[in-house]
Design a protein around this nucleic acid. Structure first.
Lengths: 203, 203
DNA sequence: AGAGTTCTTTACTGAACAGTCCAGATCGTT
DNA sequence: AACGATCTGGACTGTTCAGTAAAGAACTCT
């Protein structure tokens, strides 16, 4: 039935995502993408459609992976919920610091760049936000069950705050804070989560 | 000595800043700027230089005002330091929500868009970050003097966390959180600041 | 009022852009 | 091995871009 495609869709989308992440939507040309993927423009158009559709495909693929890995990293036994929370933040910091180009996270970047301009992208990013918040809220509920967090606290509000911290840290890595400072900020953020009142203490 | 300019430099830079803020650096053409300011390209080039210089001028002007107003909003007597802190955040939220186009704050936006790409812009934004952090740290020290904050806490680390919160909130406004949620997040962030140990309590 | 200086506008240039098209290459099928 | 279907890559198009240059308008100073 004809010639099969000579590329792996996931690999191509990963390269596309990286290219968009580097220079933004407007700052990335199809020539850049063509060079980064090794595919000609004709192939890209045939496989994914125009630039916007290609971007949405790359964004969707990234969000899918991000949501899955985030949910996996935050799920686990109640006893280690707080450890998972800290590891989730520290891992994110290290991943960005170790990135050869120190690119901001895709979600942070395009949430500010495309909000109000690109309805489709905003919808996907909004879904990604909800997924991240839900995963964090689940982890916070686990911490509550384990007595590490005030049971009277509202997990969703605190989870929203943690997403805010997460995105804020991601956006500030670009201006040159070093790892020690970032880790201190993460610890300060987690230290600010409400502890259970002493009257209810038991262990 | 010849004809004076027919425009106000500050007004033009404010319009330019708004245009860049709306669509980003790459997404804004000189025609857009020309239409927004009412000035022809020649006038813009003569007055400010090329696109990049024009952008830096607008960014610098914005940062100057932002730093001054932030410092003013956070300065005051020790007794009301915590109130000023909260008002600073709530005002920022309201300003963005009331903005006709709900544009993200200039600093947040270009910190992620230009980090690692534009050395000059990053330098200016980094200076803006330091100014905001210093103003917040000053306010936190005032709160410490007033007994509202643990004197053992490191003001600069907490101030960094507050900048993280500030930028994170700004970047998430674009995805449609409502005012009540945002206010709850602000309050959760401020509630996470370390209170003085009870042994040292006095008033 | 006139001269000189500065601002403003318009038209222009070469490059880069997104998107299209087609000739040729490559593969599964028979 | 030959066919048909699909993929591939480069050439092409019309548009938009940043930046330039020159002609004309407007203002101050003498």
């Amino acid at each position: 039935m004809g010639r099969p495609p000579g590329f792996d869709r996931r690999e191509v989308l990963a390269a596309v995502e990286r290219e968009f992440r580097k220079n933004g939507y407007d700052g990335t040309s199809l020539d850049d993408i063509s060079a980064a993927t090794g595919l000609g423009r004709g192939s890209l158009y045939a496989a994914f459609g125009d630039k916007h559709a290609l971007f949405l495909a790359a964004l969707g693929d990234y969000c899918d992976q991000d949501e899955a890995s985030g949910a996996a990293a935050l799920a686990g036994p109640d006893e280690t919920a707080m450890e998972r929370l800290r590891a989730y933040f520290i891992d994110s910091v290290d991943r960005q610091l170790n990135d050869p180009e120190q690119l901001a996270c895709m979600a942070s970047r395009f949430t500010v760049e495309l909000a109000g301009r690109d309805r489709d992208a905003t919808a996907r990013l909004s879904q990604g936000f909800e997924a991240q918040r839900a995963a964090l809220a689940g982890c916070l509920r686990a911490a509550q069950r384990n007595g590490d967090l005030d049971p009277a606290a509202e997990p969703v509000t605190l989870a929203t705050l943690l997403v805010v911290d997460f995105r804020g840290i991601g956006s500030l890595i670009g201006i040159g804070l070093d790892r020690a400072e970032l880790v201190a900020v993460v610890d300060a953020a987690l230290a600010g989560l409400p502890v259970p009142p002493p009257s209810a203490a038991a262990s």
